[in-house]
Each structure stands twice: as structure tokens, then as C-alpha cells.
């Protein structure tokens, strides 16, 4: 009884109660709807591997939403990182072959893009919405310029083989996403930087007055988000085995949906990396279930829209109960 009580308390406090309930609910619906097909081992593997990359990108975007901002530069950063990968890894168009150095390089390119966004936002005092929207176009333009609209097949498939390999029964790409989630959640829980993210999200002016170095923390948040987009881009490109400037298109809307579905309030100050991961997982389960149940594709688009609205309604409701900004 005591154990039950304390675990209930843990769930309430963790800020993922709504998400776990929703997840259990839709899993049950699909389990019944597909006569058990949705919970076969192979389908669970599929769901998890399709959660991984959206989760990493969602964690990136959520860093900037937690501080009360938004990052719309995702598509531009991913395009640029994808193009760097396509240019610098062994391929038939260029003579470069950086091998596995591509990993730190893409992360650094993403990080630099994020740093630039963060500095523009904080130093020039331009709202993050506008800064990142503009940055998205700038970076996408640069990516198209470098890429010259080619689809570059990668000849080095070491990373591709690694992310698909499953030495522990689960594809490595899933383990990467779990590691990223744990790492960012740890940063948020156990470092001053992490706590200051929430202080800024709670009340930026007050946080500044209390001594939080608001500009530095925000810039760092955007930089970290950029690094995560870099990782996401590298995984997207190597998964497919080909790189193009179009790799980032159509990512923004599902990513922000995942963040919101995970319970990260768009007003800032609430929700962590685990929320973003859960959001991506819920969307993956939902899409997978609709495919398995052969829901009419025309209706699927509508369902996704409804999910976003319901998710926003739920986070707003939670705010009413918890804290009002």
C-alpha cells in the first residue's frame, strides 16, 4: 500500500502521468483493434526504431520551448547537416572521406548553427520565433547552394550498419535516442544550467533579476538544440544511405506536435526531455496503429490534427491545476 502510494506520487510528480495514461489507452485500443498484431515483438521494434529520430529532434526543439521560446530553424539546420554529411563522407561526387569524423563534424555544424541562432536572438533582441524562422531559410538556402540539388549516395555504410544493428535486442538507433533522452534529462535535473532553463521559462524577467545569466543560458539552450538536430540529421541521412538538402523538409510540424503531445507547455517552464521522448513515442504508436488498422489515409491526416489540438488542451488544463504564469 505504501509502495503503491509512493509510486503514484512519483508518477504525479514526474509530469508524465497524462502521457503514460494516453499511451496505455491508445496501446490498448490498437491492441484490440488489430487483434494483437500491434504488440508483436517485431512491431514493437518497428515502433521504437521509428520513435528514435523524431524523439532526438523533439528533445532539441523542447529545449527552446522550455525557456519560453520556440525553434523553427529545425528544417534548415537538418538540411545543412545532411548536406555536410553528403559532402564529407565518401561519395561519388566529392573527393572527401572523413570517415567516422563525420559524427563530431555534424554535431559541431548543428551546434554552430544553434549558437548563431542563440546569439542573434539574445544579442540583437529579436524574438526567437522570427530569428529561427529566418535562420531556417538562411541555412536551407546555404544547404541547397552547397548541395546543388543532388541526392548523394553514401559509400561508407559503417554508421548505417551500426544504427540498424541490434546487439541488445533493440536497434542501436533506439539506444542512441534513449541515451540522449537520459543525458538531457540529467542535465535538466542535476546541473545549474538545467535548473536555470526552468527559471527562465517560469518568468524570464524575474529570473534575470535573481541573477540568472539569461542570455548565456538561452544561447546555450539553442546551441544544444542545434547539436541534437545535428545528431538527428546524421541518423536520418545514414539510415537512408543518401544525403540531400531535402532531408529536413516536413520535419517541423510532427516534431512540435511530439513536444506538445509529450506535455511540454508552449508557454515554457514545464516538461523535460522525457516528455519529448514520450511525445514522439505516442505519435509513433498512433501512426503505427492507424497503418496496422488500415485506417483510411485521408482520415489519418485529420486524426493527427485532432491529436495536436487535444494535446494542447491537455497541457493548458494541467497548467491551470499546477502553475499559472
Amino acid at each position: 500500500m505504501q509502495a503503491l502510494h509512493s509510486s503514484l506520487r512519483w508518477i504525479r510528480r514526474s509530469g508524465v502521468a497524462t502521457q503514460l495514461i494516453s499511451l496505455a489507452l491508445i496501446t490498448t485500443i490498437f491492441f484490440i483493434g488489430t487483434a494483437g498484431k500491434s504488440l508483436t515483438m517485431s512491431n514493437i521494434q518497428v515502433i521504437l526504431s521509428l520513435t528514435a529520430i523524431p524523439a532526438i529532434l523533439a528533445i532539441g526543439v523542447h529545449m527552446t520551448i522550455v525557456i519560453g521560446g520556440i525553434d523553427l530553424s529545425l528544417q534548415g539546420v537538418v538540411a545543412l547537416c545532411a548536406v555536410f554529411t553528403g559532402t564529407l563522407m565518401a561519395n561519388k561526387y566529392t573527393t572527401y572521406d572523413v570517415g567516422l569524423w563525420i559524427i563530431p563534424i555534424t554535431i559541431a555544424v548543428g551546434g554552430l548553427a544553434g549558437l548563431l541562432t542563440g546569439l542573434t536572438h539574445t544579442k540583437l533582441r529579436i524574438p526567437s520565433f522570427i530569428t529561427t524562422l529566418g535562420m531556417s531559410f538562411v541555412l536551407y538556402g546555404v544547404a541547397v547552394y552547397i548541395n546543388k540539388s543532388q541526392i548523394v549516395s553514401l559509400q561508407d555504410d559503417r554508421i548505417q550498419n551500426f544504427i540498424h544493428a541490434a546487439p541488445f535486442g533493440i536497434a542501436n538507433v533506439v539506444l542512441i535516442a534513449v541515451f540522449v533522452t537520459t543525458f538531457v534529462q540529467f542535465l535538466q535535473d542535476r546541473t545549474p544550467f538545467g535548473r536555470h532553463l526552468y527559471a527562465i521559462g517560469g518568468d524570464e524577467a524575474l529570473a534575470k533579476q535573481l541573477g540568472v545569466n539569461v542570455d548565456r543560458v538561452k544561447t546555450l539552450a539553442f546551441t544544444l538544440a542545434g547539436c541534437l538536430y545535428g545528431i538527428g540529421a546524421l541518423l536520418l541521412v545514414t539510415r537512408m544511405g543518401s544525403a540531400t538538402s531535402r532531408a529536413g523538409l516536413n520535419l517541423l510540424f510532427p516534431t512540435i506536435t511530439a513536444v506538445v503531445v509529450g506535455g511540454v507547455a508552449l508557454t515554457g517552464g514545464v516538461g523535460g526531455a522525457k516528455n519529448a521522448f514520450l511525445g514522439a513515442l505516442i505519435l509513433a504508436v498512433l501512426n503505427n496503429g492507424m497503418v496496422l488498422m488500415a485506417v483510411n489515409p485521408y482520415a489519418q491526416t485529420a486524426v493527427n490534427g485532432v491529436v495536436l489540438i487535444v494535446a494542447v488542451a491537455l497541457t493548458i488544463d494541467r497548467k491551470k491545476l499546477g502553475f499559472i504564469k
Partner: peptide, 16 residues
């Protein structure tokens, strides 16, 4: 800060 815990508020910027 309403969204932070009591102790986080107490020690904000002195987490070190």
C-alpha cells in the same frame, strides 16, 4: 518562480 520547487527557488544561482 512558480514552476520551480521550494529548494530550487531558495538556491537559484547558488546551485554550485
Amino acid at each position: 518562480l512558480p514552476n520551480l520547487s521550494v529548494m530550487e527557488n531558495l538556491f537559484l544561482c547558488h546551485e554550485r
